[in-house]
Design a protein around this nucleic acid. Structure first.
Length: 651
RNA sequence: GCCUGGAUAGCUCAGAGGUAGAGCACCUCCUUGGUAAGGAGGUGGUCGUGGGUUCGAUUCCCACUCCAGGCUCCA
């Protein structure tokens, strides 16, 4: 194509290579391989810091090339994608009737969807995995080939691959690429590793149904999930991580620690907070209320139902109906259980004339809402049908928006830090295709949100077009103790509801102006956040949150009075403490306290009574330490102190 | 909602077309203990709900309810 001379720059060494003809990445690699520091296989390259390509890619002009090693995030992606092809080959060999869906790499592995007569059983997966190992071991080369679109359609039609044909028809390019290895052919954009032997350590994890293109009206395919790593150690680490996540499952811990339950008899997705869970919730609620009052929020309470007309005005009947419980007809009037708190807060705003002097006006409520989530998506405390949002609505002017958003972000960070969440993933979602309000006001609001994020010192990524129809939003995910990201905070700007409810305030020039509204929830919901906390702490709540902070164990009957005395004293000091004077051995009672994840166990025997000490066993610590009772009490009281939320204004 | 797999004692689970089992938990008694399960005995189940097949169903069939894992991270 291009017979001119050109140079290619290598990113890591800044070395420039003069070329007189187009070369593939593989050829380029061979020219410079001796100089590379990497002792790991190279599986691809990033061109001009943009396009990720494999070794088949032809370089036709000047560019900058960065080689991608197999263990880098890009390299893993390439390798996992190749692993999905190996999976597809194994499946087609073992089940010739299987038709191919798609098989991409994911963040943690890969999957491939197949149309098969019979879903895969665990034994099938074993067989498939075994065949995959053989294919990997044989080290078949991948080959890339391009085809004219028409040709490709014929090719895949002949093979009965109707899903592939559908994909090709939708592509705009005149040519498509296919990848082959050992006779297996798949439509694929690539990139791929040079040969199957590059897939070092992999495992199939599960199979499940998945609709073709996520559309429940179309074919149900069978998806096989797997993961792959560049070393067996990394694979093992990942599998251990999955085990660890299982151990932290809040549904299991919730029962074992007697925190909450969800009961068939009452209904799916409806949460019962047991005493031990309720204690934690109360601490969080009290802290939340206190810290909001300090920052100029007004606490309010609103009803759980309202006349359905209110939901027509708010637009929920048009936009949210399928998630709402059915209306309740009571004679002349029909009522609706609330799926959101906003219309209620608006009614309070509108209950009198507001002045610019009142703004920003902040209403906060731990508001319980009910949403009819589809049965298949319910999951422990994380996805439920009745939950309490830590909700607030701020009514304000455009000028006030930036600072208010910034303050909300600071408050969010302050709360999250207290629970040990230090890392955040922040997303700014911008104008979707369907939206209300003017494009200008959207652009401005997006700019303001971006400025607030930057001024508050948050790194964020933009999700273009992912905003809600009524305004742009910021979503925050927190990273837990084992690195999982959980969606919690959401901050949404709303141009729509102030319009629908015809809200206004008296401006300095005595004209009536329309306020803007912010919806925000920091924890999201108390149920969900509590579930996240259980997993984050693995049930080991810090002393200030622990349902039971101290358990007192008298060694034998004649020291019970002293143990009772100490228990009463700690209780009077405000601690959550229980006496376990049951007729069981010491070991037995210690074990139970340990499995109940109680932070402190104190044992009192004759020795301790004599010396005014307690034998302290700290959860997660090693061994027992005898210390004076006064010393112990002081230490625990210090740890039990409810932390304050620190935000920049107060520093 | 859809797919697959489930539902047996409070929990974890075994079981078979013919009167229902274990361990833990719980209760009682013995044991009075030094840091993760002392011993013995006992209570406890309409085998998820409703229907069908059968002389007989918890077991086989159907429907429903609920639970688990999934249901675009787009060749």
């Amino acid at each position: 194509m291009n017979s001119h001379h050109f140079t290619v720059k290598l990113k890591e060494s800044s070395q420039e290579i003069a070329l007189s003809r187009p070369v593939t990445v593989r050829e380029l690699l061979q020219m410079v391989v001796a100089q590379l520091k990497e002792n790991e296989p190279i599986v691809g390259a990033r061109v001009d810091s943009k396009e990720l390509v494999d070794l088949f890619h032809l370089i036709t002009g000047p560019c900058e090339v960065e080689f991608v090693t197999i263990s880098s995030p890009d390299g893993l992606r390439i390798m996992r994608h190749s692993a999905s092809h190996v999976l597809a080959q194994a499946v087609q060999e073992l089940y010739p009737d299987a038709r191919l869906g798609i098989g991409p790499a994911t963040e943690e592995g890969f999957y491939y969807d197949f149309l098969v007569a019979r879903p895969f059983s665990p034994e099938d997966l074993e067989k498939i995995e075994k065949r995959m190992h053989e294919i990997v071991k044989a080290d078949y080369s991948f080959e890339r080939q391009t085809m004219k679109k028409e040709e490709a359609i014929r090719f895949f039609e002949e093979r009965g691959e109707r899903f592939k044909v559908e994909i090709i028809r939708e592509l705009e390019d005149a040519e498509v690429s296919i990848y082959k290895h050992n006779g297996f052919v798949d439509l694929c954009r690539g990139p791929h590793v040079p040969s199957t032997g590059f897939i070092k350590a992999f495992k199939l994890l599960s199979s499940s149904g998945a609709y073709w293109r996520g559309d429940e009206k179309r074919d149900m395919l069978q998806r096989i999930y797997g993961t792959a790593f560049s070393t067996h150690e990394d694979l093992k680490k990942y599998l251990d991580f999955l085990e660890e996540a299982k151990r932290r499952d809040h549904r299991v811990l919730g029962r074992e620690l007697d925190l909450f339950s969800i009961q068939d008899e009452a209904g799916a997705g409806l949460v019962f907070w047991h005493p031990r869970g309720s204690v934690v919730r109360k601490i969080i609620e009290d802290l939340w209320k206190e810290e909001h009052i300090k920052r100029g929020y007004h606490l309010i309470y609103t009803p759980h139902i309202a006349r359905i007309d209110l939901w027509a005005t708010s637009g929920h009947l048009d936009y949210y109906r399928e998630n709402m419980f059915s209306p309740m007809e009571m004679g002349e009037v029909t009522y609706q259980l609330k799926p959101m708190n906003c219309p209620f807060h608006i009614l309070i705003y509108r209950s009198r004339v507001r002045s610019y002097r009142d703004l920003p006006l902040r209403f906060a409520e731990l508001g319980t809402v009910y949403r009819f989530e589809r049965s298949g998506v319910l999951h422990g405390l994380l996805r439920v049908r009745g939950f309490t949002q830590d909700d607030a609505h701020v009514f304000l002017t455009e000028d006030q928006l930036e600072k208010e958003i910034r303050d909300i972000l600071f408050l969010m960070k302050g709360f999250m830090n207290v629970f040990g969440f230090q890392e955040f993933e922040v997303y700014l979602s911008t104008r979707p295709s369907k939206f209300v309000g003017s494009p200008e006001s959207w652009d401005l609001a997006e700019k303001i949100l971006a400025a607030a994020l930057e001024n508050a010192g948050f790194k964020y990524s933009v999700d273009p077009g992912e905003g809600v129809f009524y305004g742009p939003k910021i979503d925050v995910k927190v990273k837990d103790a084992i690195g999982r990201a959980w969606q919690t905070t959401t901050i949404q700007v709303d141009f729509n509801l102030p319009e629908r409810f015809d809200l206004h305030y008296a401006a300095p020039d005595n004209t009536m102006k329309r306020p803007i509204m912010i919806h925000r929830a920091l924890f999201g919901s108390l149920e969900r956040f509590f579930g996240i906390l259980v997993e984050h702490y693995a049930g080991n709540f810090p002393v200030w949150l622990a349902p039971e902070q101290v358990r007192t164990i008298p060694l034998k009957d004649d020291v019970v009075p002293r143990a009772q005395e100490i228990t009463n004293d700690l209780k009077a000091a405000g601690l959550r403490v229980h006496l376990d004077a049951r007729n069981e051995t010491l070991s037995y009672r210690v074990r139970e306290a340990e499995t109940q994840k109680i932070p402190y166990v104190i044992v009192i025997g004759p020795r301790e009574v004599e010396s005014g000490t307690v034998a302290v066993r700290k959860k997660g610590g090693k061994g027992v330490e005898t210390q004076s009772y006064a010393e112990f009490k002081e230490k625990v009281l210090k740890e039990a102190k409810i932390p304050e939320i620190i935000t920049p204004q107060e520093q």
